[in-house]
Amino acid sequence: MMEILKYILGGVIGSIITWFFTKWLPDHPEYGEKILYYLIRWIPFVFTWKKRKEIEKEIHSYMTEEIKSINSESYGFKILPKGIKIEWTPKKKEEVIIGEDEIVIRLGSRVNPCENFVDALISYLANSFMPNERIYLKPALYEACKFQIAISMLRKRSSEHYQVFIDKYYKPVLEKYKEILDYSGKLESIEKSGLLTPVVFPILSFYTDKWVFQRRTPSSEIQGEINELLAFLYNIATKREYEAEIGELPPLDYRGKYLKVHIVLVARKELADRFEYRRHLETAKVILKQGVDILFVMGRGRNVDLARKVSLGLRSETFCEQIDGTSKFNFYSEEGRGIQGVCYAFKRKV
């Protein structure tokens, strides 16, 4: 409907312009100079307005979708703020006032137009990505998380955007800061196995909410445990390598002084063959009663339905409650193929 209206409107405006230049203007030559003056003034304005709109549209439409998707993968924990708005400056006739906490960046005609998008993404993340959680993280880990979320957002975009980000930001920063590089290596594997937005970020948000409420100050002890948690999740993400090296599957339970987390992987083959999903449900119940704060039930590929059954079983229990909805995510096989997975989060009732 809108398309038809656009065509009609375009036709009408086109006809008026044609009539104006071919009929009206030759009949009123006295206005010619004035009209030419306005045309010269307005054509560049319309041209740059159109360019600005194009940049704005590209950034808004894609990022809004991605932000929604990441927040819904994280059970409603607000990992990213709702949206992004490009505010162009200077506006006509207005004073330019730059506040103490403001930055004005330059966008426009670049050698590679994808740079506008990537620059805006970096600026968006720099000032809005997990502002509460960052207090409890080592600065290098926070930077690595920010880069990984950018990669996760750009993975579904054209390879050109992804490449601009890698060449312009990722590689130069990682070459310079070894600590960020170490974290990024781990986070990359964690993200590819679908554990980043459905598990890592919700855990950080869950505990940050708790710590902020308790007025717990950040400490090296907390940072140390977060590092251990990351290593624990990295082992799960790279379980084949872990198994080959250690000779057994990685543990699914992490109990520290501050963080108590369990992951139920539905279905580890040795359990699924014999017990179907019920064994996982029983394990989850016991673990939650034992004092784990947050438990994830995760199923990938063919096990999605079994994971749903486990979560349904847990939902009826009184000692735990589900944290908002299902996280649907993609994990990447060794061949780089995206496969769907689901994850459910439960917290222990205090």
């Binding site: 560049p44 740059t48 360019k51 600005r52 940049i55 703020p81 709702k82 949206g83 992004i84 708005k85 490009i86 505010e87 162009w88 400056t89 200077p90 730059i98 403001e102 930055i103 004005v104 960046i105 330059r106 966008l107 426009g108 005609s109 805006a120 600026s123 968006y124 000032n127 809005s128």
Partner: peptide, 11 residues
Amino acid sequence: KVKIRAVHDAD
């Protein structure tokens, strides 16, 4: 929404 203030090349 997060506001990003930007200046276009032309401006």
